[in-house]
Structures are given as structure tokens and as C-alpha cells.
């Protein structure tokens, strides 16, 4: 994917709002049948950080980007470890089997947001990202398909991704984002998927890619990750344009920030969970001071198949993993 002038590419897309709308009209209608349109319950603005006063939209976003880039979810120690510890394909198999459950769900978050977007312009920004996530720039393969290719290269057999018990904070991450995008005001959701995801992934994936390279993975085996660094920089820029139109009022800024921080808090828990699974793969029981493991501690954990069934039973559409 070309990295030249993502903003220009974004503007070109926006200029064809009708086409973007058509591309997602089916999704919008389908979701609208399930959930009523919620245009935003806006709580009173309560600055969460001392000293943050009213500021312009761009300045707020620049400030927020700094905050995200220093957040524990984006700088989780696991990521630094992936860069420096000689993990093996087997370790990355454990990693990938947990991570996979996040891969197909991002489009669902966007679909929920699309329904709630308060203006055509906002819808078109989200639609553009959605089109990309559906497979643009990856030879028609959606991200779940790309990720399954990566899983196969780790030695994971077909279907293992649906039958592996998932750590509670892994399913918790998805559940939290579904909740944010469905139940919280639109801008909170936009904060979670925009700054919370698209600004953080280009910072989180390079150490993963470095670790994968050190473990001997070939570029074509890890396209999911390399594609995301490039693509999400573009997505982040596009979403920043969408956010800039909303982020003038202090109330709106508070909602965007709240969404981003909720997402990153869930992300920090998610990385800890993945690390825990990597450790426990090799040491199902251990006596470490911080996180002792006990036999049977994975009892009650759901596989992706079971979790999806449960979530769909609750009336939530989650994930296009298949």
C-alpha cells in the first residue's frame, strides 16, 4: 500500500460519499434492524486530568496522541519482550491463537459506529476504513483470512483458532469494545476505535514484527502485521479528520478521550493475558510471585466458537472470523 499522502487518498474517498455509502448500505440496514440508532448520550464534561482546559480540536488531538503513545496498553512490557526475547514459532502460535479473536471483530465495532454516526461525513469516514478492513490492499483477503495464514505458518492446524480456550481478558477486550461501540455515546466509540486502535497499532506492531522476523517468519507469512502498520497509519489519519470535526467542544473531547482510554486499558489487560498464556503453555503450573498458576486454572475459559455462540445468543453480532 502506498504511504504517500494518506490524507489526499482520504479526501478522494470522501469526495465520493455516495459510493462509500453504497458499499456499506447493506451492513447499515442489517444492523439498524438489530439495534436502535443511538446518537449519543453525552454526560457532563468532567476533565479527568488536572490542568486540561478547553483547547482547539487539533491541539486536543495532538495532546491525546501523546497520551496514547505513552500508555501502558501501547507500551506493554510484552511488546518489548517480543522484540528482545528469542521466542519461537510455538510461542507465536500461542500468541496468535489468543490474538486472532480480536482480528475479525474490528469491523463489527465499526459497523455499530456506522449506524450511530450523526452525519453523512462521519459515516463516510468510517465507511472508508471499513472498506479497507474488508480486504482492500490485501488482494481481496479480509484480515481474518490473512491472520489464519499467519497461524498456519506457526504450525497451528486448521480450526485450532476456534477450539483454543481464550483468556478472560482476551474475550473481555472484545466484549468491552462491543459494549463501548453499542452502548456508549458515538464519540466514546469513535475514541475507542480511532485513537484507541488506529493510533496505537502502528506503535504496537513494529516490535511484534521484529520478534516474528527474529523467530524466522518470512515476510509473506506475517503480512497481516506489516499491512496493519501501513494501513492503520492511514486509518488513523482519516479518523483524525473525522474526529477533528467533532473535537471542538470540551464535552466531545472528554468523550473521545474516555473512549480511547477505555480501549487502551482493555488493551493492557489483553497483552498481560496473552503473556500469561505464553508462559502457561510452557509452565502450566508455576509458583511465580506475581502470577502463580495452578492446575486447572484454564477451566471455564471459552473457546472462540463457544464465545461467539454466547455473544450471538445475547443478540450481539460479533466478528467475521469465518
Amino acid at each position: 500500500m502506498s504511504r504517500e499522502s494518506p490524507l489526499r487518498a482520504a479526501w478522494e474517498t470522501v469526495s465520493d460519499v455516495a459510493a462509500a455509502h453504497r458499499a456499506v448500505a447493506g451492513v447499515t440496514r442489517a444492523l439498524a434492524k438489530r439495534a436502535p440508532l443511538v446518537l449519543g448520550r453525552r454526560p457532563a464534561y468532567e476533565p479527568e486530568r488536572e490542568g486540561r482546559g478547553a483547547q482547539g480540536g487539533r491541539a486536543f488531538l495532538a495532546d491525546l496522541r501523546c497520551e496514547i503513545e505513552r500508555h501502558a496498553g501501547v507500551n506493554h512490557p510484552l511488546l518489548a519482550r517480543l522484540r528482545h526475547v528469542p521466542f519461537t514459532r510455538q510461542d507465536y502460535r500461542v500468541f496468535g491463537l489468543q490474538h486472532y479473536s480480536l482480528v475479525g471483530t474490528f469491523t463489527t465495532y465499526l459497523e455499530h459506529l456506522l449506524v450511530k454516526a450523526p452525519s453523512s461525513q462521519a459515516k463516510s469516514w468510517i465507511a472508508k476504513v471499513l472498506v479497507d478492513e474488508y480486504g482492500e490492499g490485501s488482494e481481496g483477503k479480509d484480515h481474518a483470512e490473512l491472520y489464519r495464514e499467519f497461524l498456519r505458518s506457526t504450525g497451528s492446524p486448521e480450526g485450532e483458532e476456534y477450539e483454543t480456550p481464550l483468556h478472560r481478558d482476551v474475550t473481555g477486550f472484545v466484549a468491552e469494545h462491543l459494549r463501548i461501540c453499542r452502548d456508549e455515546p458515538f464519540l466514546v466509540g469513535l475514541g475507542a476505535v480511532g485513537p484507541g486502535h488506529e493510533w496505537s497499532i502502528p506503535r504496537m506492531f513494529p516490535p511484534i514484527i521484529a520478534g516474528l522476523g527474529a523467530a524466522g517468519f518470512q515476510p509473506d507469512e506475517i503480512r497481516y502485521f506489516t499491512l496493519h502498520v501501513l494501513q492503520d497509519e492511514d486509518h488513523g489519519s482519516w479518523l483524525e479528520e473525522a474526529l477533528a470535526t467533532f473535537a471542538e467542544a470540551p464535552e466531545a473531547q472528554a468523550q473521545i478521550r474516555r473512549g480511547a482510554l477505555l480501549s487502551l486499558a482493555a488493551r493492557a489487560r489483553f497483552w498481560s493475558a496473552v503473556q500469561d498464556q505464553i508462559v502457561r503453555y510452557r509452565q502450566p503450573e508455576n509458583v511465580h510471585l506475581r502470577a502463580p498458576a495452578r492446575a486447572g486454572s484454564s477451566a471455564g475459559l471459552l473457546t472462540l466458537r463457544e464465545w461467539k455462540r454466547k455473544v450471538q445468543g445475547a443478540g450481539i453480532t460479533a466478528a467475521s472470523h469465518t
Partner: peptide, 15 residues
């Protein structure tokens, strides 16, 4: 060895 470097990596990443 690796944990030590990862610690310094995190320091550089954050600061």
C-alpha cells in the same frame, strides 16, 4: 539478559 533489554526498550518507547 533479555528482560533487562526489554526494560530499557520500554523506557525508550515511553520517554
Amino acid at each position: 539478559c533479555y528482560q533487562a533489554k526489554a526494560t530499557l526498550q520500554t523506557a525508550k518507547d515511553v520517554l
